[in-house]
Computed example of a mutant assay.
Amino acid sequence: MNESHAAVKLVDLRETPLDVAEVVAALEDDASGGLTLFVGRVRDHDGGRSVDGLDYSAHPTAMTRLAEVCDRVAEQYDVTGVAAVHRVGTLAIGDIAVVVATSAAHRGEAFTASRALIDTLKSEVPIWKHQRFGDGTEEWVGAP
């Protein structure tokens, strides 16, 4: 993998619980007037059905792809910091599944970059969700 863009401060896939404070601390910078954070959590429903829990699985290339997405966001937007951490393994309702953040001199650029970061991560990084529903059925989401 190529050396990361200097603005990329934190990129990881973890089986352990995610810490929002760690992501915020990674983007600490006196030049940044705005930091936009998105926290994705496991909800108790999907498509009108109750969800009991889920598992996230990552392809072996997922970490490399996540770093590439972060690098691209850092290059395309005027940001001072980029961070993205995604959970893998078994998660319960309310658990944090993903935390992304960007920092910038101004809030508008931070908002725009963070939106691009989470949207691109969801569409390009090979991480798949296996949902378990209250009625005993299950479903893979995002799997090829």
Rank of each mutant, 00 (worst) to 15 (best):
V100M: 03
E109H: 13
V23S: 06
E15L: 08
L10F: 03
M63S: 12
V88T: 09
R41P: 05
D44P: 07
A7V: 03
A92Q: 13
P126I: 08
V100A: 05
G34M: 06
A83V: 06
A105P: 09
V24R: 15
L35C: 14
A101N: 02
V100G: 00
E15I: 08
I93P: 06
R115T: 10
I96M: 10
V8P: 01
P60L: 11
V99H: 04
V24G: 03
A116T: 05
D55F: 12
T61A: 13
A83D: 01
A74G: 08
G53A: 08
G34Q: 07
E15W: 12
L37I: 11
V11A: 00
T120D: 12
R132D: 04
P126F: 10
L54R: 00
V23W: 10
F111L: 12
T64R: 15
T90P: 06
E15M: 10
L13C: 08
A6E: 15
A31Y: 14
A113N: 03
L10E: 01
V51T: 13
D55V: 15
T61V: 15
V85L: 01
G81V: 01
P126E: 09
E109L: 06
K122R: 14
E28I: 08
V141Y: 08
V79R: 03
A83K: 01
R72N: 09
L54S: 00
R132P: 07
T36K: 09
E139A: 15
G94D: 15
T80W: 05
I96Y: 00
G108N: 13
A105Q: 12
S57N: 08
A25H: 12
L91F: 02
A26K: 14
H130K: 07
Y56H: 05
V39H: 06
G48H: 04
T80D: 07
T90V: 11
A67D: 13
V23N: 00
Y77C: 01
L91R: 06
G108H: 14
G89N: 04
G89K: 01
H5Q: 02
E3V: 14
H86S: 05
R65W: 11
V100I: 04
A6Y: 04
V98F: 12
S4T: 11
G53T: 11
F133W: 10
T16K: 07
Q131V: 11
V8N: 00
Y56C: 04
T102H: 02
R43N: 11
T112P: 06
A21F: 08
T36M: 13
D135P: 09
D46W: 13
H45E: 10
I96D: 08
T16F: 04
G81S: 04
A84R: 02
R72H: 08
V11M: 02
F133G: 07
V99G: 00
A113R: 04
L13N: 10
V82Y: 03
V82G: 00
G40Y: 05
A31H: 14
R87H: 02
A31G: 15
R132C: 11
